[in-house]
Write a protein that binds this DNA or RNA. Sequence first.
DNA 1: CTAGGATCCTGTCAGC
DNA 2: TGCTGACAGGATCCTA
Length: 285
Amino acid sequence: MPELPEVETIKRGLSGFIKGARITRVSVLCEKSFIGPLEAVENQKIKDVRRKGKALLVDLENGITMLIHLRMTGQLIYRGKNNNFAGGHPTDSFFTELPNKQTRVIFELENGKLFFNDQRKFGFVKLLETAEVGNDKFIKSLAKEPWDMSFEEFKKNLQRHKSQPIKATILDQKVIAGVGNIYADESLFFAKVHPKRETGSLTDEEIKNLLEGTRKTMQASIDSGGSTMATYVKADGTKGDYLRLFAKVFRRENEPCENCGTEIIKIRVAGRGTHLCPNCQREEK
DNA sequence: CTAGGATCCTGTCAGC
DNA sequence: TGCTGACAGGATCCTA
């Protein structure tokens, strides 16, 4: 689930509440969700909260870093004495009583509790030495983020996957960091490129627009607040949906395209649900 | 090296 | 009501 903008939103939202706080106790409710010795984090003060791609990094004062990856359904929910914050996969757990069935790790802090929830258990908290974070296999292989990536570098990375559908290529974190299923669809719509196009068939102009698309769509999401309790609004008993604040195609099948009015469709590309406007994004050039 | 598919896990929803 | 299969904001591992 959570892609770069969601993790960035969590970083920003959580920092103010947990930075400087001491972790007094940790409860691991699911073994596979926490990798490393508990003793390394208990009684440690949180020094900093950082982000690399879709990974959140929580630095502790003893030189240990918790690498938190939310994968598909991870959430971080902070319940403090005076403040609450929740981000990640948007569900009712943002508001309801915790811990619940999906709670995997509980961090007790001096000023509140931080719950790591994760329905599908794909996410994890992994302990690393802060100095070794850069050598972690996943972190090491990450490409640059859209704002740091030059056209030339993006093009070069795309060329390694000439025959793959372009959507599969930009989901690869070694090609560009932070893009997931939402922003892949949104960026391709922005660039007016069909998700099934062979990567090698894109023109320079399309590559340029696609890179700009990743920047624009992810920035728009960060600016609108990502997936937090504030954007997971409920109106008249209906479930809120932060995607509606910025998404043009994602989960908007059967709705009119805002450019041309054609119905947005949902197809399957590279094994993932994929949304596009069949008029704005032509498969044949 | 790349490409494509299966896999980890839980939950929900559509269709019979 | 109950079953069954498809699918889900991710990334890795296996095979060809």
